[in-house]
Nucleic acid binder design. Sequence first.
DNA 1: CGATCCCGCCACATT
DNA 2: AATGTGGCGGGATCG
Length: 876
Amino acid sequence: ENIFDRSRMAPKTPIKNEPVDLSKQKVCTPERNPITPVKHVDRPQPDPWTPTANLKMLVSAASPDMRDREKKKELFRPIENSEQSDTPDSLQYDMVDDSTVDEFEKQRPSRKQKSLGLLCQKFLARYPSYPLSTEKTTISLDEVASILGVERRRIYDIVNVLESLHLVSRVAKNQYCWHGRHNLSQTLKTLQEAGEMQYGELMTFFQHKEQDLEYKFVERKKETISESQFRPLLDFSEPDCTSASANSRKDKSLRIMSQKFVMLFLVSKTKIVTLDIAAKILIEDTQDTVDHSKFKTKVRRLYDIANVLTSLGLIKKVHVTEERGRKPAFKWIGPVEFPGKTDEGCSPTSESLPETQRGACAPYQICATGKQRFTRHASFNGAQPCEGTRRKVSSEPSSPRQERQDEYCSKIINLAAVCRQKIEEDTGNPSITSPLSFLPVPGDSDFCINPLPQAVFPVVQTDVPCLPVPNGISSQALHPSMPATCKTENGKPTLLPNQHFLCLPSSSLFMLCGGLQENNLRETLPATGDVGTRRAEAQAAIPPAACQKRSSHRCTSPSAPTDDEEPAAKKQTVEQSDVPLSLVVPKKPFECPKAASSPGSGCTSAEHLEAFHLDLTSPAVPEAADKESTKPLDSQEQEKRCQNKDLDEPSPGKEHISKENANQPFLPQYLYVRPTAGLSSFNFLFSANQGPGAISLAASQLPSLSVPCVVVPSAALASFPLVCSPTITSPLSPVPNGSLAATSVSFSMSGLAPTAPVFIGTTAVATPKVSPAPSLDPQQPAHPALHLSPVLARSCGAVKLDSPVCMGHPVTLLKLQQPSSTPLTPKNIRPARHEAFFKTPGSLGDRVAWKKNEGHQTRSASSVQRRLEISSTSPD
DNA sequence: CGATCCCGCCACATT
DNA sequence: AATGTGGCGGGATCG
């Protein structure tokens, strides 16, 4: 229809035959616009019509089959093909005339002829892959649509994908600027980096083991989700400063999806990504059930994207045979290694872009129109200096970021769902599936998400330097000085109440912070109880109250708003809420690390924890939830948990785990300093949040722990994952072994046993089986998974891959042999802002148990929380 | 019959 | 209100 229209529009050549085929279309197109050299003029068309083009045309005309073949071929040789399509010149006329003859084409342009991939080729053919800097090419959607004989809608599909790779940028309404591939490598690099952070582990796992996919998937998904949140930031920001401008509305899923999809490839070792996996990873559905339709839709979109990417010569279709059968997949055939340019960020890009673009279209430059965007970018990005906003374009798209946030939330939820599904599917075990459980909530517990410590996730290895830390990190943390400050303050002051953690882009420093959020607290509530429980568990139960009190006293400072005293109650509540421990506590093993660990003070450990909590906790702690109010809840929860624990204890399996995860309020914060320059040989881990006092305490109790800063030889680290928790906690339930001793031991272990992963846990460090079995390789397929104790697990979560060091809070590591355990990977780096989002209680909790037990409540709460806070401001 | 994915409705965003 | 964008999924076509 379009074609006809066009012909009408540009009746130069009465096309008797409709331009049915692509080839024809091409031909026709030229005809119409033949005279209009506008495009040509503007666009430098690098490739002149190829001599073979005519031939091809003829061939195609000859038979549909041939055409198809040609088309297919074209896909692989986009450039050449494109040229054909592009060339609208007189030659084509001739061709057309000739071709006109082909009626068959008209008769029915096969579907293939209309395929997006082909269309994309045509589109690409119109523009030079590497336009001269001097020339700027502006793309008019309407024009292109008419030329190509398609609806504008289709052009959007193409342009959106191209935009995600920065091959084009939107300049104004209906206007895009063609950049070509000059920046492609940078973009890819950026995506790769972002992808590693987000999906690194997942992909790694996948590749390592296909067998375990299920679990892996789950984990990955989780991670993905968590990171997905970030992504947008990354993505948009990354691309260019401007990119931000683009998103609005629903975040433009196609663009984001495209980037994510590409990331998967870049992160994948095999460079092959199956559609279903990609879809699952990319789906962000809240509902588990929904999946089917959603999945279907996602796949459709992926096909759209894949078609464009195929036309770009970045991927090609392949099939992978798995146990389940043959699955469609795509293999990355684009560049794998990227030059270092990327670092530059916007500026480089702009540079790379020829002046031409700058003037008019450089996407990068554009960023500015919306302040919001700009801000956001900055904040999100971590500061990339965009040059700027050189110019606004009239219709430059602006978009509210909020949406994104929502999106993130939804994404998270979706991921959870996905994970759930996946798990269910794979495992067949529904229990685990609870969406919440999977959710990696950014907020509180999220990263730790231990969601399924029990079951599901295998160890996650993260390349990402940043571990997901529980909240609490403040932007300040960024600076090296931070640690000191934190310590000094010991309290919350430094930490932002809301912020969970902050991730710094800087290559050299990474801060991991865990903060408690007020919201979570509630969910976590049980924490108080838990805490108490723990202790109790540890030995007899100590009245929680007592413990709390103590903690409160000591920690008083932490609770900013409250006085030390007054708050006793509040504090407690807060603490409770904050303390993730509570959750953890449930488990017996858990028990009191302190007692064990710190002989002197049973409470000490507790104190430490509290301190953290306090620190983390923001003043904001819900007063409403006084002990009383809270307690009831807590008590209930506690009870549940206790029960669960009890129940669970016996069976380390998934079940027990679920609960614990939920929240961990207190999270130790760490500062990781990469061994960049002079420090190449060492890795430093600093606990940022601990207050001096805390530290001192720790020290007194545990020498090893006391050390605020850990220096690990990078080489050593490389071999094992290192997990450190600031506070020392009791050993996890799972590993009853010398908990206290274990911690210290484990620490030392690192040095001693090269192979064994070392964990230092704030809470008790359990080196469950693991320590004993050094052989594990975290990364290996075998997955020496680290399991976090359910309790701790949530709190910590770090696992690492690339980065030599992983920070974990109170994590217990278990080796996994069982798929059940879930690795927590806190890699995400999220902007402080997001905190609110993350605070989903649901996330905290147990994924597994969740559904069954409290799912409803929790969920509702979580949802609420999610929306609670979205801070508009950017930290930066 | 599953894999692909075209097509275009329609909601939301921007003018 | 008009127009630009683009999510989305029905259902056709391919293999």
